[in-house]
């Protein structure tokens, strides 16, 4: 009876879990309208499709398989084939949003792939849709490889400011870029830490960036500041690094610097070294003392023997 009970309970539990799983993932993955209407900043070309194909092999193929072959991974929820109708009826903006932000098992590629890379991926996925017509790009001036701006960084030690100037060079003529958004990061061991909000260039194409306080630096407070052009402003993704001595200096003290029970012999606690050495020393002194005493007895014995033999 009890067994039957537990069996029914088990079935109930499994079905409940199944229900929740389905209800969680059958939820529509809705993309905000403004994101959905977004279009690629360049026209898709054979070059962008090729770049997208390479990126797809590296980042997507392990789950989504080869587009058109329906050899995607057997997962729940199913990753699906990007060449299928389900994918192709999405707008370019939908695809871009989903690649960028991810959901559940689909990882987000915001920090892994640049915007250009993500659009190249969309162009690759679109290449499996024969009747596809690309909507007119909003920023039509750009190509996949970009009409790029150049950036220079300058540190002013008096004002404690970093000056960023953004300009394009055409026929040896420098023209400042107005209103380009620059994002700031601090270089860290495994990645770049975003700091603060981005800033926009003024009429002269210049940003005076006051370095934020409380950023941890190295032993003398040096910090590597990275300025990067926001790709969405349409001037490429130029990136420059500058060393700024405005961080909070940190002193590294080795975790094995202190004496501790778990440290190497040389760095054991003083009381341990002392008591151990004294104990060992004590044992040896006792042994030597005993040996000396035995020798003494032996000498008394030989003296006694000599006396005896002299007497006889």
């Amino acid at each position: 009876m009890k067994r039957i009970m537990s069996y029914t309970r088990f079935v109930l539990l499994i079905s409940l879990i199944h229900y929740f799983t389905i209800s969680l993932f059958s939820e529509e993955w809705t993309v905000p309208t403004d994101q959905s209407d977004k279009t690629a900043p360049f026209l898709f070309t054979a070059e962008s499709v090729q770049k997208g194909a390479d990126l797809f092999m590296k980042n997507c193929q392990s789950c989504h398989g080869n587009p058109g072959k329906a050899n995607y991974a057997n997962m729940d929820p199913s990753p699906g084939d990007p060449a299928s109708e389900k994918f192709q009826k999405l707008t370019d903006g939908d695809m871009f949003y989903k690649i960028t932000n991810g959901r559940g098992t689909m990882p987000q590629f915001k920090m892994i792939l640049s915007e250009e890379d993500r659009w190249d991926l969309v162009s690759y996925i679109r290449s499996f849709h024969t009747g596809y017509i690309q909507p007119e790009p909003e920023v039509a001036t750009m190509t996949s490889s970009g009409d790029r701006a150049t950036m220079t960084l300058l540190y002013d030690s008096l004002a404690k400011m970093v000056t960023i100037s953004v300009y394009t060079v055409k026929n040896d003529v420098k023209s400042p870029v107005k209103g380009a958004e620059v994002l700031f990061f601090i270089k860290r061991y495994f990645g770049n830490l975003p700091v603060g909000e981005g800033a926009r260039t003024n009429e002269e194409g210049i940003i005076s960036y006051p370095f934020p306080e409380g950023i941890v630096g190295d032993s003398i407070g040096q910090v590597a500041l990275i300025a990067q052009l926001n790709e969405s402003s349409g001037y490429g993704n130029a990136k420059k690094t500058i060393m700024v001595p405005l961080g909070v200096p940190t002193e590294w003290v080795s975790l094995t610097a202190d004496r501790a029970m778990w440290n190497i012999n040389f760095k054991a606690p003083v009381w341990l070294i002392l008591s151990y050495s004294l104990t060992v020393l004590g044992v040896f002194i006792t042994l030597i003392y005993i040996a000396l005493q035995i020798r003494k007895i032996f000498l008394i014995g030989t003296d006694y023997d000599d006396e005896q033999s002299e007497k006889s």
Partner: peptide, 26 residues
């Protein structure tokens, strides 16, 4: 990790990076 479970980094830099999303935070 496919699910963004792990953050790893350097306490000296007060920064950890997510293994899945490669995002770096304090």
């Amino acid at each position: 990790c496919p699910n963004g479970v792990y953050w790893f980094g350097d306490e000296m830099e007060d920064a950890v990076t997510n293994g899945t999303t490669k995002e770096t935070v304090s």
